[in-house]
């Protein structure tokens, strides 16, 4: 057992967990933040994407202990306040970018990360770029059409 401490959605958290606990299990099982999902066991589906120190990470590929001291943001903490929505969340709703909702938190976390990265690099996030960037996020419901639209819309709203 190891005591693992990190800041999650702005709150300091500290939990004693088995050494081999994955970050996703720490978030879901220990902190009971169940918006982060598990859709596969080979790090392909992206339902578990969270931000660790500002970077998108598949939380099923990282040990909780490796995030010791990190700033972690999950879907529950992506909006500015409890009553607010992040512009990317709004864009997913307005563009019907979700159906069953299971992949959605990972999609939104991956989307906000890609917008920030492209902005920082001064690159244009056009449709082919969005599609390529979504390589690590699988959706079975939407056929991606509206997810791509939502991310483009969310990107403009984040400007």
């Amino acid at each position: 057992m190891t005591k693992v401490s990190m800041t999650v959605n702005g709150k300091a958290r500290s939990v004693e967990v088995p050494d081999n606990t994955l970050l996703v299990d720490y978030i879901r099982e220990n902190l009971r933040l169940t918006g982060t999902h598990v859709g596969c066991d080979t790090s392909q589906c992206g339902a578990c994407v969270v931000h660790v120190d500002g970077q998108a990470v598949k939380s099923c590929t990282m040990l909780a202990a490796a995030a010791e001291g990190a700033e972690v943001t999950t879907i529950e903490g992506v909006a500015a306040s409890k009553d607010d929505l992040h512009p990317m969340q709004v864009a997913f709703k307005e563009n019907h970018g979700l159906q069953c909702g299971f992949c959605t938190p990972g999609m939104i976390m991956a989307a906000t990360d890609m917008v920030s990265r492209y902005k920082a690099a001064g690159k244009t996030l056009d449709e082919p770029a969005i599609r390529e960037e979504l390589e690590g996020n699988i959706c079975r419901c939407t056929g991606y059409h509206n997810i791509v639209k939502a991310i483009a819309d969310g990107a403009s709203k984040m400007a």
């Binding site: 169940t34 918006g35 529950e76 969340q89 709703k93 909702g101 299971f102 959605t104 938190p105 939104i108």
Partner: peptide
């Protein structure tokens, strides 16, 4: 009409079976 159910899904508040303890 935009979907009524979306709010809980985009905020991570959906309640799926594995979320239940």
């Amino acid at each position: 009409v935009l979907r009524k159910e979306d709010k809980r899904f985009i905020t991570g508040k959906g309640k799926y079976t594995d979320d239940i303890v």
